[in-house]
Each structure stands twice: as structure tokens, then as C-alpha cells.
Design a protein around this nucleic acid. Structure first.
Lengths: 171, 171
DNA sequence: TTGGAAAGTCAACAAGGCTGACATAAGATC
DNA sequence: GATCTTATGTCAGCCTTGTTGACTTTCCAA
């Protein structure tokens, strides 16, 4: 475990990190391998239902922000409307998502999960949370806090805004 | 920052984590948004060269384990040989990767980066390391250690083996 | 020596990105 | 009211990168 110490010197408020390229490379590889594990469980479930990761992302964020508009979802997911539309159409046709025309602005569609949609969301997030919970438990509370800090520092500012925005809306 | 403390109790060796589904969900979303940032910089460079993420992955791991066989690369990347072959063929044709027929076993191809390949690898990993380094610096050494611990705990056991394997071979 | 396993190639298909062009409806502005 | 802009949807077509299936070449072991 030569990387454990991370060659760190901390000194009176100012912290110096001596990070070799190799140590950073290990972090990059860890992200790569961990992301595979991160998506593995939902992927299996989605496959059984004939959906892909794109559907999962849509379902996740509709669940997270019920009544969100297509445009808002677009900017969160960072894809084109044509790409999202294909996915959304399938979910609406299959009765997992409901698109209600807006009251104030009738151009907008507000997206909601149906009961069936919420059930799939539950199934997917149960599987994903299970793994996250196990990882959190294995790594311990201090590690979890660090994990979150590094991830947040890694985001683009715009993504960071979306991320923070979701926090606020859920509390 | 209500999530900062993570509702943690630590007690004489045994640590109890009270993690709500919502807190775990935040972790899941952090992974999603952070991974986007993680790949953003290399993606831009790859695009200029007419390559995709698949090429990046191949280049990365060939650089990491020079002389690796196609089969070994296959199990690291977790794709089919047909899928990898397409990418590899492009890289060989463009003179970034050299595939040498094995001495002992002529069925095997041992993969090496050419000078041009190594140059692109450098460019890509410089960009990616830049962001990682910034994130590490922003989050601090303790956070970095935690980050790595959680990521490792999140991997599938098989991925974990590949991950550890790469460490050994580089030292 | 022969049959199976392993490495790699070719062909065809699917998911899910993308761009571009265009339609519709509705809010906003002049 | 006419016009501009915005939000959304749709069609067509392309690319990357995954997949499966069928095939060749090579090696090894019975």
C-alpha cells in the first residue's frame, strides 16, 4: 500500500501535496474501474426490460425532480433533444413516464413517473444503492466524506450547479 | 452542508454509518456528474484527432502495460474482441500502435505504442491528470485517500484484480 | 495426426450519441 | 394583429462502439 500515505505534508494551515503522475494515474484508473461497477447492477436490470443507460438517466432525474421540463432534463443530461426524445418517447409509450402539458406555459411538458415508472426506478436505485452502501460501509465515514469532496471538485462548474441544484430541491 | 457530517458515529473500533437513501443518492449523482468532468478534457482532444473514448482506453492500457496481448487488453476493458479489434485496427493503421506477432505463440499480438502513439497518450493523460490534480489539491490529502478507498470498494472483484495488477506491474 | 482451443478477422446489426431541417404551438414584443 | 422567439417534437441520416455469428490461422495435447 505505497499509495496510502499519498506522500503528503501538512503544515500550519497550508497543505502541500506531492502527487506523482503515477499516483494520479492510479486515481484515473480507479475512476474507470469503479464506474464500471457503479453501472453494472442497473445495467443488468435495464437489460431485462429492454432499456439502456439512457433510459435509466432519464428515469432517475425525473424521479428526482418530478414535473421537470424536457428542456431542464436536457441541460442536466447534456445530450441533444433528438437523443433524449427517442428515449422519452419509448418511456411514455411504455407507460413509465407521463408528460403533462404545462398550465402557465402550454409549450412545456412536465415529466412525471407513473406508478410503473416509479416501480422500475425503485428497483434500479435499490440495486445501485446496495453497492454504494456496501462500498461506503467498507471504506468508512471519513473516506466517504473525502470521496464526495474529490468528486465535487472534479465536476465542471456547470455540472456542479446542477448537482447542487438537485440537493436544494430535495430538501 | 447538511451532508458534510454524514450522520456518523464512530465508537471504539466499530464504526456505525447512518446513511439515508437520500445521502446515498447524492453519492450516485456525484459519480454521474464527476465522471462527465473526468472524461471531458480527453474527449475534446480525441475529437480533434477523430478518435473516441474507446481509442483512449486502448491507448491508456497499452501505455500502461507495453507488450500486452489483445486478449489481456480484452479482459481489462471488458468488451468483445470484435469491438476492440475495430479500434485497434484504426490505431495500427494510423501508426499509433504497433502489433508484434508473438515469438513463442504466433497467434498472439503484443501491443506497443509507437512514438506518435506515446505522444498522443502524453497529451491525453496530461489533460486528464491536470483536472485530477486540481481536484486532489482542492479536496486535500485526507479526502484523496478516502476517494480511493471508496472507489476500490465499489469495483467488482474481477475489476479490482485488474486494478491491483496494474499497480504491481508499474513498480 | 487430428481435433479442440485460442487469437484474430469479417460481416451485420443495435443502441444511443450527433447534426440539420422543418413543423407546431404558444408566449413575448412591437 | 403581425412578427419574433422559445419549447418541443419529428424525420432523415450519420458515427461510434457495443453486440453476435461465422470463419481462418495457429498451437497444443491426446
Amino acid at each position: 500500500m505505497s499509495q496510502g500515505a499519498s506522500a503528503v505534508a501538512q503544515k500550519s494551515g497550508e497543505s502541500l501535496l506531492f502527487l506523482t503522475d503515477d499516483q494520479i494515474r492510479k486515481g484515473i484508473e480507479a475512476m474507470f474501474f469503479a464506474y464500471r461497477g457503479f453501472t453494472a447492477d442497473p445495467d443488468r436490470i435495464l437489460d431485462e426490460h429492454g432499456y439502456g443507460r439512457a433510459h435509466h438517466r432519464a428515469i432517475h432525474f425525473i424521479h428526482r425532480s418530478p414535473g421537470t421540463t424536457v428542456n431542464n432534463l436536457l441541460s442536466i443530461l447534456g445530450v441533444t433533444k433528438q437523443s433524449l426524445n427517442r428515449v422519452l418517447r419509448a418511456l411514455v409509450e411504455d407507460g413509465l413516464v407521463e408528460a403533462r402539458i404545462g398550465h402557465r406555459d402550454k409549450r412545456e411538458r412536465h415529466l412525471y413517473l407513473t406508478e410503473a415508472g416509479a416501480a422500475l426506478e425503485q428497483k434500479l436505485s435499490d440495486a445501485q444503492r446496495e453497492r454504494m452502501r456496501a462500498a461506503y460501509r467498507a471504506a468508512g465515514p471519513v473516506a466517504v466524506a473525502g470521496f464526495r469532496q474529490v468528486l465535487e471538485a472534479m465536476m465542471d462548474p456547470e455540472m456542479r450547479r446542477h448537482f447542487d441544484g438537485l440537493s436544494d430541491s430535495s430538501r
